[in-house]
Nucleic acid binder design. Structure first.
Length: 488
RNA sequence: GGCCCCAUCGUCUAGUGGUUAGGACACCUCGCUUUCAAUGAGGUAACACGGGUUCGAUUCCCGUUGGGGCUACCA
């Protein structure tokens, strides 16, 4: 049987990092089994609907490299298209007639009923239950209305929803791929609304109908859905369908161990993109939140994760979304990026900073091991493009003096002037200046510190020789000359 | 409140009926060094608690505690 997993987000604005991890696991599981990764859009809540929500989600998914095989996807120009034969559209709002048909079937068979209770009455009921510490849930007021009578009232236009009938007895037992056996008493499961009064299905009906029609074999989703499984299983039973296997993933947590939320930090994938995190780092980091292959290796590409992934190795407890670890991953991956690749990925950040990288194309190499995100790069190497103002006192090394400096700087400049353009590279600079320092009896710091400050204008920076190489001989000499003027 | 899930260093985690309980991030110390970063060497730090089962439990069972999720005509 062909494995089919799906990721089914709601277009409410952006892709949540927790959603990205769910998508990643579903993607890995599908790919590993040579199956299909399906993307479905669950837009049955018209109040939370955001117009370009689907576009945003797809953008983030494609950015991360999780490309759907089936369902909703991008064409070459980032237009939203659909592919696959899952019984029509993969966007739920375009499948309303399908859900209606299935809801009607349940009503006809006595597995669901019209409910005419108003939201106000249900509110009161809820409050009453809370106050008296009773189990929550619909009290079944409309459950036993004569079906013919209910049908009549409904067709006369009386506002209503459709609820599924949960059995009053027995247990629903199922085997979660991650958690093992889980059981619920049916009497405690609510008669869930499956069709709203606006003619849209609720999640519970839509997800069951769609997963079946789209031939999903494995449902991989967040733990927040665990408690609605008995409802879904009951619907499968009513329809006479076989249920897919299910895996409920542990949640992603804030530092205080509550469910990861916007209030305590960034949760949108696009936020991390904007901050200059690499997809490799995000994917690797997020994959390891709740899963790891067992060894001591930590750096894995998407392809390697696909190879190693298994639901059995997914943990059961929630994982804190720890930015420090993410930063470490990002640093590692920035270091590993080939220079051309780094340049290309960093370009947008330089564009917004108004820095023309082509003026000093090798400048990035200076800071690639010092920054944690791409977004820090422009600020970090700004000094190459424009020497910042600095206090003349900064030029004096802690163990040296202004007097000594006045001798060293001109001598150094003179010496550097003797280099041919050919020899102007950091290795040669380093070895020859080193010899020169020895010959003249200077201490190393007394020369290199001011040289570095003269070239960078900063207290902290990369080493003087690498900067000199990037700047070129002319600009290097110019900056040393400027330093000479400063100390006088 | 009810139902469900979960529990190894601060965090992410490996692991086993008998281990000096391993790694990574973070933190600290030292080394290298012209600064920072990087890097090398070390260090601090965990089996939530109480009962069982067992010759022996961090590991298996039960309970307690703690945390989380759900409890909508939201997903």
């Amino acid at each position: 049987m062909l494995v089919r997993t799906r990721f089914a987000p709601s277009p409410t604005g952006y892709l949540h990092v927790g959603g990205l991890r769910t998508a990643l696991y579903a993607y890995c599981f599908a790919k590993q089994n040579k199956g299909k990764f399906v993307l479905r859009i669950e837009d049955t809540d018209r109040e939370r609907f955001v117009a370009d929500g689907t576009q945003n989600i797809l953008k983030s998914l494609y950015w991360a490299g999780l490309i759907p095989d089936e369902g909703v996807m991008f064409d070459k120009n980032e237009n939203i298209i659909q592919k696959g034969d899952g019984g029509g559209s993969y966007i739920q709002s375009e499948r309303l007639d399908i859900y209606k048909e299935h809801a009607d079937e349940l009503v006809k068979n006595g597995h669901a009923y019209h409910c005419f209770c108003t939201p106000e009455r249900l509110d009161e009921l809820r409050q009453f239950q809370q106050l008296n510490k009773l189990p929550p849930g619909y009290n079944g007021r409309c459950r036993d209305i004569d079906p013919a009578e209910a049908q009549k009232r409904a067709s006369q236009g009386e506002k209503h929803v459709i609820r599924m009938k949960m059995p009053k007895e027995g247990e629903t037992v199922f085997n979660d791929e991650i958690r093992g056996e889980v059981r619920f008493k049916n009497e405690l499961v609510d008669d869930q609304v499956i069709m709203k009064s606006d003619g849209f299905p609720t999640y519970h009906l839509a997800v069951v109908v769609d997963d079946h029609l789209m031939k999903i074999t494995h449902i991989i989703r967040g733990e927040e859905w665990l408690s609605s499984v008995p409802k879904h299983l009951q619907l499968y039973k009513y329809f006479g369908w076989e249920s897919p296997k299910m895996a409920h993933l542990p949640l992603l947590l804030n530092a205080d161990r509550s469910k990861l939320s916007k209030r305590q930090g960034d949760v949108a994938v696009e936020d991390y993109v904007k901050k200059g995190y690499l997809k490799e780092a995000i994917i690797n980091f997020i994959a390891f939140l709740g899963w790891n292959p067992g060894g001591e290796r930590e750096l894995f590409t998407l392809g390697e994760i696909v190879k190693e992934f298994s639901l059995g190795k997914v943990g059961k407890s929630g994982a804190v979304f720890n930015l420090q670890k993410l930063d470490w991953f990002n640093k590692e991956y920035i270091k590993r990026l080939p220079p051309e690749e780094l340049t290309e990925r960093a370009k947008p950040f330089f564009d917004t900073a108004g820095i023309d990288l082509t003026k000093y194309p090798t400048a990035l190499a200076l800071e690639r091991e010092r920054v944690t995100t791409l977004a820090e790069l422009p600020e970090a190497i700004k000094f190459v493009f424009e020497l910042p103002d600095y206090e003349p006192g900064l030029l004096v090394w802690k163990k040296s003096s202004a007097e000594e400096l006045k001798n060293i700087l001109p001598a150094l400049k003179e010496f550097l002037d003797t280099f041919s353009v050919r020899d102007w590279q950091k290795e040669k600079l380093e070895s020859r200046v080193g010899e020169w320092i020895k010959e003249n009896g200077y201490s190393v710091g007394a020369v290199l510190w001011p040289m570095r400050v003269a070239l960078s204008g900063q207290e902290n920076s990369p080493g003087p020789f690498e900067i000199a190489e990037v700047l070129g001989q002319d600009e290097t000499l110019r900056r040393i000359e400027k330093a000479m003027k400063n100390v006088v």
